[in-house]
């Protein structure tokens, strides 16, 4: 039986950088730590960090509250950003948008129920993470493949014309805030 030499295990990412970490608090008070490279994928967060003047020294002492995103979605977002923080900028693929294939890791990450997915896409929109937005749209688009209009109504939560009219009528009949 061989004896393993005692050497410290060093994560590859730690070798690549001595990361500056930031703290984010979700709407339901979950705290997440995210590296500088990862947080840069969110234009909203990075603008906030820049405007608040957070630095490597004071970053962890000043958690950033994000009130529009719950803990579950924030966890997905942080995982996504950490995974893709070193990605090279992708070329515009608008011409081949329908041929673009979602990487398997990301497909697994986004295998969540429809309601969560729609909430995630809203959170992504708020945090302005372009790549995650593209990926979410791809997943939502793929749901429509080979589905009938009736099936699409259920999947996407689309009311029929009659339901829509009825909802609109009841909304207009109900008294307004002042009423």
């Amino acid at each position: 039986m061989s004896v393993e030499p005692e050497v410290p295990i060093v994560q590859v990412e730690e070798v690549r950088e001595n990361p500056v970490l930031y703290k984010i608090i979700s709407s339901d008070n979950h705290v997440f730590t995210i590296s500088e490279h990862a947080v840069k994928l969110s234009k909203t967060l990075w603008d906030l960090i820049t405007n608040l003047g957070l630095t490597a020294e004071n970053a962890l002492d000043n958690p950033i509250p994000v009130e529009n995103v719950n803990g579950k979605n924030m966890e997905t977002i942080v995982q996504f950003c950490e995974r893709h923080k070193y990605d090279e900028e992708e070329p515009e693929y608008t011409n081949y948008i329908r041929e673009f294939v979602l990487p398997e890791w990301d497909r697994q990450l986004l295998s969540i129920d429809n309601e969560e997915l729609f909430q995630l896409i809203l959170a992504t929109n708020y945090l302005d993470i372009q790549k995650l937005m593209d990926y979410c749209c791809r997943v939502i688009g793929d749901m429509a493949k080979d589905k009938t209009p009736e099936e699409l109504r259920i999947i996407y939560g689309i009311p029929t014309d009659a339901e829509d009219d009825a909802l609109e009528r009841s909304a207009s009949d109900s008294p307004g805030p002042s009423g």
Partner: peptide, 21 residues
């Protein structure tokens, strides 16, 4: 209350339709 394709902002729905055949 809960988001669906029907309640998403128009820009996002447009983005999703880019991926539809």
């Amino acid at each position: 209350t809960s988001p669906t394709l029907a309640t998403l902002p128009v820009d996002m729905v447009k983005h999703i339709t880019d991926y539809l055949d």
